[in-house]
Design a binder for these strands. Sequence first.
DNA 1: AGCATCTTCCTTGGTTCGTCTCATGAATGA
DNA 2: TCATTCATGAGACGAACCAAGGAAGATGCT
Lengths: 213, 213
Amino acid sequence: MRRTKEDAAETARQILQAAESLFLEKGYEKVSLEEIAVAVGVTRGAIHWHFKNKQGLLLAIRDRGKEPYRKLAAELSNNTAVSVLTKINDIVSELFERLENDPRQRGLIRCMMRLDISLTESDGICGATFRRELHQTFIQIFSAVEEEVRLTAPWHAESAASVFSATIVGLLSDWALEHSTVRLSPDGQALVKMILSGLISETCCQKNSRPED
Amino acid sequence: MRRTKEDAAETARQILQAAESLFLEKGYEKVSLEEIAVAVGVTRGAIHWHFKNKQGLLLAIRDRGKEPYRKLAAELSNNTAVSVLTKINDIVSELFERLENDPRQRGLIRCMMRLDISLTESDGICGATFRRELHQTFIQIFSAVEEEVRLTAPWHAESAASVFSATIVGLLSDWALEHSTVRLSPDGQALVKMILSGLISETCCQKNSRPED
DNA sequence: AGCATCTTCCTTGGTTCGTCTCATGAATGA
DNA sequence: TCATTCATGAGACGAACCAAGGAAGATGCT
């Protein structure tokens, strides 16, 4: 039956692929494992060998789809000389445009949303939800921001990160769930820009204005 | 067994009540209809007589929990003389405070989120999701706004309503799903205020600055 | 290299659990 | 009286999950 170790990885990949398209096409709970199995050409047991259970499939699909956001985190963590405000803005804008142009991403985000709800309901710990990871990322970012520039009025790093990540997730979920109400590309970008300029007092971003120089 | 018509309504109410607490306590998919039935003291058949299916329970729970938002829509629709900006702001702020002080609301919002995902996945029409209704409300609001005051820069009624409702839903879902990251009461309110003042050019809102007086 | 053995990968069959249906019946309300 | 409403209980059906087995690569030993 099986020929090589790579063959096994290939069937796992095929299972994941079939699951993703079927989930996107028919909805998670309308798809049975049997259906996925016959789509690939294996039996149910094969799925349970490679993945723990049906939710494990969802987890794996999500992990495959996390690269765009890891990229976001990576690009934000390495400090460059440009203003932090415009930097965050650019990264998020680019992310939004990439999502708009990749139809697969909508299904992936739907998977993440469903998984987030299931994880928070089942695990009391609710570790590693999508929103939580995004939130952690932004806490780091805004903590770094707080040292360089000043956050306006009542904001501090954590509250700013909270509302900012909530906004991002709100935009993404609305875009993923509703058919064509929110447009990430012009509208979401503009909103992000507005919020950022509201959170960060831009005048402090000038490097050469620091007194100890 | 059954005594009167009111008794029947009472058991339906009890079923709904038990379902809501169990869903909140253990998570939707971990709760079986059998469990709900014995909690009330009936059998599964009784649940299926009053509600179409398990998702019907969720729908009914959501409908019971929609009053706060209907109230929001109602208060926003009747025009008072105050500035539209401050009016929206006040209503949303009051909503946020009410939610923060009512622990039941978190579970209800979780129900709405789960239902929204299921509805968009199963029904192609995805009619009457929570986010869609909220979006519709804000479209009306901002359309009315557009006639009185001016929306800033690139915004028009629909795009403003889209991003605004997305933000609200983002805040609500984050608050409902994560344990204590987002605080609606000071942080969410401040964000809403910031966004509103960014969307609406406030200078036009002064009633007494109009030339025809 | 060649054999034995282990491990990996997958099938088959079966168990369990949950939703939903249906036939039945009791009490009510007209 | 008698149809309707409310509810029971058994059972059909489907789907997730489990366990034993087996076949073929992978691994170790000489």
